[in-house]
Simulated assay, not measured.
Amino acid sequence: MYGMRAALFDHFGPPDVLRIAEVPDPEPQAGEVRVRVRAAGVQPFDVGVRRGDMTWLDLSFPQTIGQEYSGVVDRLGPDTEGLAVGDPVLGSTMLNGYAELVCVPAKNVVRKPDRLDFPTAAALVAASQTASGALLELGVTEGDVLLVHAAAGSVGTVAVQLARLAGATVIGTASPANHAYLRQLGAVPVAYGESLIDAVRPHQPTVALDAAGGAAIAQSVALGIPRQRIGTIVDDKAAAEHGTLVVRAGRNPQRLAEVIALAAKGAVTMPVRAYPLSDVVAAHAAVESRHGRGKVVLIVEPGKS
């Protein structure tokens, strides 16, 4: 029986291959909860899935999509403990987050604090886990000078704030339009381009996180940052070429919960660019453009937060 709305696509291609359709309501299995989704994050990984770049994934058309959600538990599977119907939650899922309902293992669910709205909670899911894991792998601590490439994006936004909370100085690269935003986060802004190295060198960076790709790793090496302290989340090829790290940390509900707790206190923020689920094509186009700050989020139930 068809019931819920979900975004899906029937073949690889540009954003307009995405469509909204009615699909069967999922039912939670043992150890799972079903969540009525209120907001779903849109990330570059989703763009790659839609384009067919993620060749290792086992996809089947029509294919649903989406990795991050926030919402309210509306059904419990057998043998599920620790959560109740009505609990506000958030977390990671796999290729099914752009939907009205999603079933997820209860052990992977993070409770949403009352002070955090649903769109912001969804916006923080992937960025929190990626940024916190990358900083952990790179050993960023008090006294470090961290260079963040693409600091105004979702991962960069969280990385800047977590590094500042750890006592590091942060240099953030971004387009000039986002420099005031980076200053608000506590970073020293630097523009992309050929002048980047000269602008950053006086700050003597000790560690670098690349969320931009392109020339970022080569520039970090040229700045004299030790190769074992240069990490990328986007450019495996350049990392291999220069002997630097890929810091694509896995999902970790505990790390996510820690950042969410900081967000509830106002210590970590995330600007949200919201689109209704019906505008999924526009949302994907916005992410694919690689412009803008913060996070693109789909609002599954418009008018609520």
Results as ranks from 00 to 15, higher is better:
residue 69 Y to T: 10
residue 229 R to I: 02
residue 59 L to W: 00
residue 143 G to F: 09
residue 28 P to C: 00
residue 57 L to E: 09
residue 302 P to L: 07
residue 186 G to R: 13
residue 24 P to K: 11
residue 237 K to N: 12
residue 22 E to P: 08
residue 215 A to L: 03
residue 16 D to L: 14
residue 237 K to R: 13
residue 237 K to V: 09
residue 294 G to E: 10
residue 28 P to D: 04
residue 225 I to L: 12
residue 226 P to M: 03
residue 20 I to F: 03
residue 71 G to A: 08
residue 222 A to L: 15
residue 270 M to Q: 10
residue 39 A to L: 06
residue 254 Q to Y: 14
residue 270 M to S: 11
residue 197 I to T: 14
residue 216 A to E: 01
residue 19 R to F: 06
residue 177 A to V: 06
residue 245 L to E: 03
residue 214 G to K: 03
residue 132 S to D: 05
residue 272 V to G: 07
residue 158 V to Y: 01
residue 156 G to R: 00
residue 130 T to H: 14
residue 261 A to R: 08
residue 43 Q to E: 11
residue 237 K to P: 04
residue 69 Y to E: 01
residue 109 V to A: 07
residue 29 Q to V: 13
residue 3 G to F: 11
residue 287 V to H: 00
residue 298 L to H: 06
residue 264 A to F: 06
residue 174 A to E: 11
residue 246 V to N: 14
residue 280 V to M: 00
residue 3 G to M: 05
residue 7 A to G: 15
residue 37 V to C: 01
residue 55 T to M: 12
residue 245 L to C: 07
residue 71 G to H: 01
residue 3 G to D: 15
residue 252 N to E: 05
residue 10 D to H: 02
residue 121 A to G: 04
residue 32 E to Q: 15
residue 109 V to W: 04
residue 240 A to S: 13
residue 278 S to M: 15
residue 63 Q to T: 06
residue 14 P to I: 03
residue 173 T to N: 10
residue 169 T to F: 08
residue 256 L to Y: 01
residue 5 R to L: 11
residue 157 T to A: 03
residue 21 A to F: 12
residue 38 R to P: 04
residue 210 D to L: 12
residue 267 A to M: 11
residue 192 Y to D: 00
residue 23 V to H: 09
residue 99 A to W: 04
residue 252 N to F: 04
residue 19 R to W: 07
residue 194 E to A: 02
residue 178 N to P: 01
residue 143 G to T: 02
residue 39 A to M: 03
residue 187 A to W: 01
residue 300 V to W: 00
residue 211 A to T: 06
residue 215 A to P: 05
residue 11 H to S: 12
residue 72 V to D: 15
residue 97 G to C: 01
residue 226 P to D: 09
residue 288 E to V: 09
residue 49 V to C: 10
residue 109 V to T: 05
residue 191 A to S: 07
residue 35 V to D: 01
residue 180 A to F: 04
residue 128 S to P: 00
residue 20 I to K: 03
residue 206 T to M: 02
residue 96 N to P: 10
residue 267 A to L: 13
residue 222 A to V: 14
residue 224 G to P: 12
residue 36 R to N: 05
residue 11 H to M: 05
residue 146 L to N: 12
residue 17 V to Y: 01
residue 67 Q to K: 11
residue 172 G to N: 02
residue 192 Y to C: 00
residue 174 A to L: 13
residue 187 A to L: 02
residue 284 H to E: 02
residue 194 E to M: 05
residue 121 A to H: 05
residue 71 G to N: 07
residue 91 G to T: 03
residue 76 L to W: 05
residue 18 L to G: 07
residue 274 A to G: 13
residue 160 V to D: 08
residue 243 G to R: 08
residue 17 V to L: 07
residue 32 E to W: 04
residue 14 P to F: 03
residue 276 P to C: 09
residue 196 L to Q: 06
residue 278 S to C: 15
residue 293 R to I: 00
residue 286 A to P: 08
residue 53 D to K: 13
residue 211 A to H: 03
residue 90 L to H: 00
residue 157 T to R: 02
residue 192 Y to G: 00
residue 134 A to E: 13
residue 133 G to L: 05
residue 62 P to E: 15
residue 201 R to M: 14
residue 138 L to W: 06
residue 118 F to C: 11
